[in-house]
Design a protein around this nucleic acid. Structure first.
Lengths: 99, 99
DNA sequence: ATCTTTGTTCGTTAATTTGCGAACAAAGGT
DNA sequence: ACCTTTGTTCGCAAATTAACGAACAAAGAT
């Protein structure tokens, strides 16, 4: 045990992404977005068996991890992947798993 | 909202793996094991700035997610990746991120 | 000005997670 | 028998997460 920094920024980043992906609903959302570029939160709300407030929190979590982004398009909000961070996450995981 | 199952087993599996990877210490351990096949928990304990009981819990979490395994080799325990599940996790993440 | 639609935020509750030190267990060494 | 080493488990406290319904906010439609 020591006080020096032994955990890299990349490892922290991976952990941050992984944590955000650590719930089935959030994986579902990410997978959907990776397949169809965008969707409205209402679409998800109709399909997923959770309260819309709960869904909203999951989306918030994905947003704060930087994996998705939402563009307001009244009265709806269109969600897409944050392509830049999605690519970064992909790269980070590839590094971890080794090609 | 409905009652039918909309989330696949694979999505649940990804979430389970991701959750286990959702902490910097656990990412550190996984990365180390992916590079050097095996290590003793004591090696980790010397390097990581956390109590050994805390480390033990992180290892337990990785074990219960199926990502690592520990072979007792008294008085130490040798930890390795659970290669089968590691490969599965890799595949699952590749599917999610898309090649 | 009011209504409708769409999401977010608030307040609460229950469950889980993180972290520590102390106590315990296993097993070889003295 | 006892000591040492190595980890795990226990008991606890603090923080975070997950979930819900109710209340609120934004903005176009009537």
């Amino acid at each position: 045990m020591k006080e020096q920094e032994v955990i890299t920024e990349e490892q922290k980043k991976i952990a941050r992404f992984a944590k955000a992906m650590g719930h089935p609903v959030r994986v579902y959302v990410l997978e959907k977005l990776s397949k169809q570029s965008c969707c409205y939160s209402g679409d998800l709300s109709e399909i997923l068996p959770i309260a819309k407030s709960t869904l909203s929190q999951h989306l918030k979590e994905l947003k704060s991890a930087g994996l998705i982004q939402g563009e307001t398009e009244p009265p709806k909000i269109r969600y897409c992947l944050n392509q830049q961070n999605w690519d970064l996450a992909k790269k980070n995981f590839e590094n971890l798993f080794g090609e």
